[in-house]
Write a protein that binds this DNA or RNA. Structure first.
Lengths: 205, 205
DNA sequence: TGACAATGTTACCGATCGGTACGTATACAT
DNA sequence: ATGTATACGTACCGATCGGTAACATTGTCA
């Protein structure tokens, strides 16, 4: 009720977005809290408090907390593939360089102070049940990542493309976890170098 | 520390400080539930119910749920190094074979139906706060693992031992996570093969 | 047997969990 | 103005969270 700042003369001309303003704010806050603290660690009360809204607003835009978590991960999925495709686009037709570019960036990100790993991976750890909405999004993302890594390994001319693709996936997941386990100076900073060594050892002679 | 399992029916000569029977049962049940479902997902009520005891029994043996979780991880730590040292002892003086033996077993375990990854790693994901009792145990375990892997890499004669040791750690953590993310047929089954390729590529020529 | 300590039990605490019934404020078309 | 639809807020729900006070039972010694 202390919303006395109606200095604005008429209606806001810029905010023409049809989806409820509250939903966007809620998702934005939830994304931040879920990633940094974990999904189970954050209650809906804290989300709505920090978003400056109330609970019914949350439940009008999202059917449940679990679905809100799934929405957070769907957004995370989009941003993940943006980053991935950015590395791919930077080196057309050169999958080895594409991997190197992607992993160099991953390695750098893991060295940042507030790094908390991969939101997808973390969610899967928090929710082992296969049917959980958040986990379904997470599993789909990882399946697709595996598919693409194997395809890139094949394009590199690996002797055993599936094994190399899976090896790269193991290194990536290891970097995500190690990045949040060890802080600065952790093993994750060497992920690009190790991946390149593994690739070199996996190509057809 | 009186590690003899005496069969004497008389007084317990070895077990000088008899840990309460209830405490053992509680820890056993907690270990199972924490590992399979996650620590945050399990309440103390469920633990005591399944253990056939009541809550005060739990809180007389453990100061808090967080400390119970830490105790679970301390036990996990012991069993982990048992498995690790078993692989080491199987191939004296041959660190490359030791790693191969350990990772072959890890790869096999990840293919079991109820595999839920590494309890240490999972706990660290669940509790990002550095000061949490469970996370402290987890971090110590991982630091030690890193130290030993780097030492083994050096013993193998790696060109860059620290990088290889860290690469092996990334593969291992990746296997833990991938094992629970993808079920059967996941990337984790190739961890030993990929590790061997990486080792081969990292030795001094 | 009696004394004592360890262990187990009943019943309860305040706080927080995810979720909802229901009334209110605002915008726009008629 | 008035109807109508939509967005938002107040107040509350039962269940469960981790944790505890007070009491009953048990086993082990002298």
């Amino acid at each position: 009720m202390s919303r006395m700042k109606s200095i604005e003369p008429t209606i806001n001309a810029d905010d023409v977005a049809p989806p409820p303003r509250a939903a966007q704010k809620i998702l934005s806050v939830a994304r931040d809290l879920f990633y940094r603290q974990g999904i189970r660690a954050i209650g809906v009360d804290e989300i709505v408090k920090r978003a400056g809204v109330t609970k019914p607003s949350l439940y009008r835009s999202f059917p449940s907390k679990d679905e809100l978590a799934a929405s957070y991960l769907r957004q995370y999925d989009l941003e993940f593939w943006d980053r991935f495709d950015e590395a791919v686009a930077a080196h057309p037709g050169d999958p080895r360089a594409q991997i190197a570019a992607f992993l160099t960036r991953v390695g750098k990100r893991t060295q940042k102070a507030d790094y908390r790993g991969c939101g997808m991976t973390n969610a899967a750890v928090e929710y082992p049940e296969r049917s959980h909405p958040a986990r379904i999004v997470s599993e789909a993302n990882k399946q697709e990542l595996r598919r693409r890594l194997r395809a890139m390994a094949a394009a590199m001319g690996a002797a055993d493309a599936d094994t190399l693709g899976d090896g790269l996936l193991l290194l990536i997941e290891g970097a995500y976890i190690s990045g949040q386990l060890f802080g600065l100076g952790g093993p994750a900073q060497s992920v690009a170098r190790n991946a390149d060594l593994l690739i070199g050892a996996s190509l057809k002679k």
